[in-house]
Structure formats: structure tokens, C-alpha cells
């Protein structure tokens, strides 16, 4: 048996859109952190040749960022049909 849907207390679309915008703000920070991770490995001090794994890691993170940006920009692209006056976009 299906459970009854909980009552809607918040407009789902605009709420989701604002959270996507939050994610879009977080994404560059996340990217910067991931790009700084190689600093922790200190590859200059290790003996092993690490250009190949390092390069693969960078390109992997890079590709992930592009993919995430693609998804987010799709979700953020079209303007919402109506403005929600009660909770306008936080921050700016």
C-alpha cells in the first residue's frame, strides 16, 4: 500500500532551485580544495615518479568539476516562472 504524500509546506521547485544555487556556490570551493590535495602528497620529496598518477588525479577532478558544473548549470539555467517573495535568494 502506498503511503499518503505528506502535506506540502514549502514550494518544492523554488526550494530545490535555491539549494542548487547553494551547491553552485560551494562547487568552486570544493574544486579548489581538491586541486590543493597534491600539496599534501609532497611529490617533490618522494622518490617515486608521480607525474602520471598526479596528472591522472588532476584530470579526474577536473572532469568531475566540469560534469558537476554541467548538471548545476542545467538546473539553474531557466529562470523560475514566478518569484517567491517570501524567501528570496539568500546571499547574492
Amino acid at each position: 500500500m502506498r503511503r499518503p504524500k505528506p502535506p506540502l509546506f514549502l514550494e518544492r521547485d523554488s526550494y530545490r532551485r535555491r539549494r542548487v544555487a547553494d551547491a553552485a556556490r560551494v562547487l568552486p570551493v570544493l574544486g579548489a580544495l581538491l586541486f590543493l590535495v597534491p600539496l599534501l602528497w609532497a611529490p617533490a620529496e618522494t622518490e617515486t615518479p608521480d607525474t602520471v598518477p598526479g596528472g591522472l588525479y588532476i584530470f579526474l577532478v577536473w572532469g568531475g568539476l566540469i560534469l558537476a558544473a554541467f548538471v548545476l548549470s542545467r538546473r539553474l539555467g531557466p529562470e523560475p516562472p514566478k518569484r517567491n517573495l517570501g524567501e528570496s535568494e539568500e546571499g547574492g
Binding site: 577536473w62 568539476l65 566540469i66
Partner: peptide, 8 residues
């Protein structure tokens, strides 16, 4: 890349 990804 970071600047563009953080366009918002």
C-alpha cells in the same frame, strides 16, 4: 576553471 565553475 574554478572561476568559471563558481560563476554563481
Amino acid at each position: 576553471t574554478l572561476v568559471m565553475v563558481g560563476w554563481w
